[in-house]
Design a protein around this nucleic acid. Structure first.
Lengths: 248, 248
DNA sequence: GATTAGTTTGCAGGTTTTTGCAGGTTTTTT
DNA sequence: AAAAAACCTGCAAAAACCTGCAAACTAATC
């Protein structure tokens, strides 16, 4: 088994079980524990997992819904304010998860009357605060990492929906690589959403603009609107403007 | 269980119950009390909890999605303890929502390896704390009332599952009327669950025994096991025993 | 196809971490 | 004041870890 292959396998196992033991992997793959350790160290360096004594844990495993601290909260609130204006009464809205989307949920006008489809537990809980919003939760396997449902069933359901607008909480966006992710399953869900919605809106803090991760969701033309906390005429965004994106 | 994992679990338990006892944790996680003490000391050093004689206390400020105060918490915890013992490694488990089910989720041994199917958002969030539990969320319209998904899609999905055991948080149970509900949509979901599971377990506090509501889920023979906080030989339960129910 | 530069892997060894336990001390309860 | 429970200290065994090195492998070049 090649090194790359092995590392992909390890990563897959970590994301699947949220934890792996060096000893187990060594037996499964039939290489020495030292090799496994080196692999884990490398993957940890790349930020793909967290190495601990005895093995490794998946990235998101240690943070719980309860005490999660939101990074760059003010920026995200600002983005949410702008994005909320895109939603009209009666619309069918599709959303992913993530802290920016949570802020969007909180920024919605209380009397808004719309139907929200989501794969995110935490977003669904926020939407529940709004009396006139109908929520459809898209079910499937729950990814502990991303706190959203992922898998073939979910993708199929998303494809059945013809949504007016779709909001993507974004990890990385770049003019040449488009929208990118670091989790295969999450990418699949986002991809399904992009194809199912009339209008695709990416929400992202300035810090994540012009960064890329490993797996592409869609290229820059798959997105129609980009919402950041920056002013629309900012230098940073000119490349996106040229490509025809609406900037808010 | 890895050290880091264990500490994460302890921290979660502390934030959940606001206090933990070393002795309890030692039993649950199956390590010596010394190890627990060392973990608590470390976490206390990091300022994540406050160590006291006999265990530890939470720091205080933590946001919880479900800050609702639970009625009859002690009784429900007792029920959850008993019910948790019915679940074995590798089982397919089907659960509804409700506060008793949440307690069941919290009472599960941390190393349990099983697959949980649920319609409840809050239950799913609790299951996420367990590293080895796979969660399948059943999607559909979200009932703001019951905080579970309801509707034809959800029912259809439930019917596709052949679960080993099904836990029903119960509103009302009665020897003649069986299991009853006051919400049509919830009733449909529970009914689907009863028919999909090998073994049906009703969890209910003594107060709700011998009460009835308007809509029947199933008659008393649809249920195999009844779990309450009462001793199994209590007078109140004799009628159910006569009908052949197992009492815990 | 052979050569060579660069990677990758397993192993020997020595170090560190983790854990349970024994024995004695402190705290809490009765 | 006695008994019980919880605590701490030091110790030892096991497991995991790291370092350096040589053998094995890969891939590109001649």
């Amino acid at each position: 088994m090649l090194k790359k292959e092995r590392q992909t396998y390890i990563l897959h196992q970590v994301n699947l079980h949220n934890r792996v033991l060096s000893a187990d992997l060594s037996q499964e793959i039939k290489v020495s524990e030292d090799t496994i350790r080196r692999d884990l160290a490398e993957l940890a360096d790349q930020g793909k997992l967290i190495k601990v004594h005895g093995g490794a844990l998946s990235q998101g495993y240690h943070f719980s819904v309860h005490a999660q601290q939101v990074y760059a909260l003010d920026e995200k609130k600002c983005i949410a304010q702008k994005a909320a204006k895109l939603i009209q009464d009666g619309m069918f809205v599709l959303t992913t998860g993530g802290t920016t989307i949570i802020e969007l949920a909180r920024a919605l006008p209380p009397e808004l009357k719309a139907t929200f489809f989501t794969v995110s537990l935490t977003a669904a809980i926020e939407y529940m605060q709004h009396p006139n919003i109908e929520i459809i939760l898209i079910g499937d396997k729950l990814s502990k990492n991303a706190q959203i449902t992922v898998g073939g069933e979910a993708q199929a359901k998303i494809k059945q929906i013809k949504a007016d607008i779709c909001f993507l909480g974004t990890n990385a966006i770049d003019a040449t690589h488009g929208l990118t992710e670091n989790d295969w399953e999450v990418m699949q869900i986002k991809k399904a959403m992009v194809t199912s919605a009339q209008k695709v809106v990416a929400l992202t803090i300035a810090e994540k603009v012009n960064t890329a991760q490993r797996i592409q969701v869609c290229d820059i033309h798959g997105i129609h609107t980009l919402v950041t906390e920056l002013a629309p005429d900012s230098q940073v965004l000119s490349a996106y403007k040229k490509q025809g994106l609406e900037i808010l």
